[in-house]
């Protein structure tokens, strides 16, 4: 059975000990950032490796700065390739953004200019990444709080042109679509309509927070997923028409494992309900 379907969870440090001690996997799959695992050692690392050997895993990168200009650290790239083979990840994803400039890393997902020059540049960089990696490469749409420079196109058009130009898969972060729709005032369903949903290989779902002083929703991954985002996931899944894996992201205010698994279970119910008509249709 294909393990890469249903709702998985990001593997997080506070849960390692409990998860490693389980006899079997409590989720269809985990997601993990290779940058946080390669080159590590010690007891916590051994717990991670035990889990990764036992359970299916999808990798998700944080720091390649694909929209940026800095050359890739060759050692880090070699480590990443080795890790992807070792974990048998079905693909590898990175954000459609930049994180470093002039050698300095911000560890922040910074917005791309929505311009033709940026499309051309990002497509070229994504093609080079794809040529290096031993697995297919997916771009993830990010939350953006500002346009960097005068836009020549919409975010939607930018994303579409990059995905088509690089001919790569799409990690559709449905929470990011929702956050952007609220911050920039558009209808998320209209936004999704006409997007190349056939490129979606995986989805992300997460919680966010409203910041009064900034008058912005920030993609904090620090709260449970809200109903409108779950409804958006349910709206898009039948339109994708395939049981693509959805990953619950939680990076801040991380709750106890039981609480997170309970949230996963309720998302799985919503996922199954949304796909039931499509999947039963396939059997007709």
């Amino acid at each position: 059975m294909n393990p890469f379907t249903g709702v998985g969870v990001g593997l997080r440090r506070p849960h390692l000990e409990k998860v490693a001690a389980l006899d079997s996997t409590p989720v269809p799959f985990w997601e993990i950032a290779p940058e946080n695992v390669v080159g590590q050692g010690g007891s916590r690392h051994r717990q991670v490796m035990k889990i990764l050997e036992r359970d299916p895993v999808i990798t998700h990168g944080l720091s390649m700065s694909i929209g940026g200009f800095d050359a890739w650290d060759r050692d880090a790239l070699a480590n990443l390739k080795g890790f992807l083979k070792e974990t048998r990840s079905p693909w590898h994803s990175e954000h459609l953004c930049w994180t470093s400039f002039g050698g300095a890393t911000t560890h922040e997902l910074l917005p791309m200019p929505f311009t033709r020059d940026a499309v051309r540049h990002t497509v070229e960089r994504a093609k080079r990444v794809q040529a290096e990696l031993p697995v297919p490469f997916l771009f993830e749409n990010v939350s953006y709080y500002a346009c960097l420079g005068a836009p020549e196109m919409s975010e939607k058009q930018f994303l579409e042109e990059v995905l088509e130009g690089a001919d790569c898969g799409w990690l559709l972060d449905i929470n990011n679509v929702y956050v952007n729709s609220r911050n920039h005032g558009f209808d998320p369903r209209e936004w999704l309509e006409g997007m190349p949903l056939d490129r979606v290989q995986q989805m992300h779902i997460a919680g966010h927070a409203w910041f009064e002083a900034e008058q912005l929703i920030i993609d904090t991954h620090g709260a449970p997923v809200i109903d409108p985002v779950i409804e958006l996931m349910q709206w898009v899944l039948p339109r994708i028409g395939r049981p693509v894996p959805v990953l619950l992201e939680r990076d801040n205010e991380i709750p106890e494992l039981d609480v997170l698994l309970a949230e996963r279970a309720s998302l799985q119910k919503a996922y199954d309900a949304a796909l039931a008509p499509v999947l039963s249709g396939n059997h007709d």
Partner: peptide, 23 residues
Amino acid sequence: MIESTEQALGPTWNLQRCMADLI
């Protein structure tokens, strides 16, 4: 080890330099 930064002066590079300075 980081290879030297690519020299690709253009509008996208300029905008990113500006934002890096801001941050």
